[in-house]
Design a protein around this nucleic acid. Structure first.
Lengths: 219, 219
DNA sequence: TAGATTGTTAATCGATTAACAATC
DNA sequence: TAGATTGTTAATCGATTAACAATC
């Protein structure tokens, strides 16, 4: 029935963390207010775009003045759900999985990695950044019991689909997918892909274009 | 003069690696041809979009048949510059930097991390995944001498700008930025940001919307 | 008050999707 | 031949940007 759940524009969601970061810097400097123009200049964006983005948080500014920095920081944190933390499972304690476990910063973003899982027997039982690595065999049951909503997938490509299925079987509702695999999961499951190859493709292509423009030799 | 360097649409560039991955799977299965519809179904895209994306590689298909899988794989690899490798420096041997050094897969994408640098004296001289960690003091000179074009930035936020400046000073032309910092660099320098906080913001927001829709309690 | 900045509506732009003729 | 699929042009959609009145 509630089909007017019209989500907020994804580009807006992606920009909000950058605004937040800048606002925190301003707050640390003791700056009480900020204008869209100021934010836009700093981040290389259009002021109108910043204004519209801010509107999704429900904050209204004062003409001639701008927005109150602490109020805006608070509103963004609330809007992005950074105020109350969500527990997550991490699957795949390889190089990347280990790095994510070691990164303390996710706490700030309301993400709390409470357990780590792996397939390989040599890893099970070891401690990685304060969490004991557990067998994937116990993952689904544990996810169910702990009402885990988010699974972080950092496994080799060939086991990605199987372990994603296992996460879903455990009642997980969203997968943060760091593998290059296109996961086939029930439509209700949220999948957010972090595809480094895509990012690198953009970088390489732009670099190639830039170098081409550099040495124009012939028309 | 050459202002008609109209780059290819970024969304297209981002999708090509996914096509490539799927095509490699088909090739491994011995499938000689593939249609747009097939690719689109697998990846959850529109067939016309796939067709247009493929067009940037210059490959033409056969009506009624589709595209030749090996030919298409080759064309994508050539287009994305995966055939000839580019040397890169990595700056910041923390959790993430170490993980990227350990990931062998970048070779496939034409990226070759030839050296790693760090600020902290304890790390300098140690071996990380086969590379000796060097002091950032020698970075710019070495980049210049080796004609390095790409710098991978995996340092703490507070030193990101300084080290990016140093990379640029060393003649680097593109920065793959894994820090949350908005870098201020000369306009000719390509910057590709990998912002995990942005990705997580999308995930969290979609999850929250999904859970809200779940238990509609009241209108 | 004058003028900078917000909020909002309209115009533009670019990407996605639909329609359809061409082709093997 | 019939029909599936390509290539291409047109329509739609959504996001960005421009314009401008409202406001402190």
């Amino acid at each position: 029935m509630d089909d007017n759940v019209r989500a907020f524009p994804e580009p807006t969601l992606r920009r909000l963390p950058a605004y937040h970061r800048f606002l925190k810097i301003l707050a640390a400097r003791g700056r009480p207010v900020v204008s869209c123009t100021h934010i836009a200049t700093e981040l290389g964006l259009d002021p109108t775009q910043v204004r519209k983005d801010i509107q999704v948080t429900g904050i209204v500014g004062k003409p001639r003045v701008g927005y109150l920095v602490p109020e805006l920081i608070d509103a963004i944190e609330t809007f992005l759900g950074w105020k109350n933390s969500t527990d997550a499972f991490l699957v795949g304690v390889g190089h990347l999985g280990t790095a994510l476990l070691g990164y303390g910063g996710f706490r700030e973003y309301g993400l709390n990695i409470v357990a780590a899982f792996d397939k390989s027997p040599e890893k099970i039982g070891t401690q990685v950044h304060g969490r004991e690595v557990q067998s994937v065999d116990s993952m689904a049951e544990l996810a169910q019991r702990m009402h885990i909503l988010i699974g972080i997938l950092t496994v080799p490509a060939d086991s990605a689909q199987d372990l994603a299925d296992l996460l879903v079987f455990g009642g997980i509702r969203a997968v943060w997918n760091f593998t290059p695999v296109k996961l086939h999961l029930p439509p209700a499951i949220i999948v957010e892909n972090v595809q480094l190859s895509a990012s690198l493709a953009v970088l390489s292509n732009k670099l190639a274009e830039s170098l081409k423009a550099d040495v124009p030799q012939e028309g």
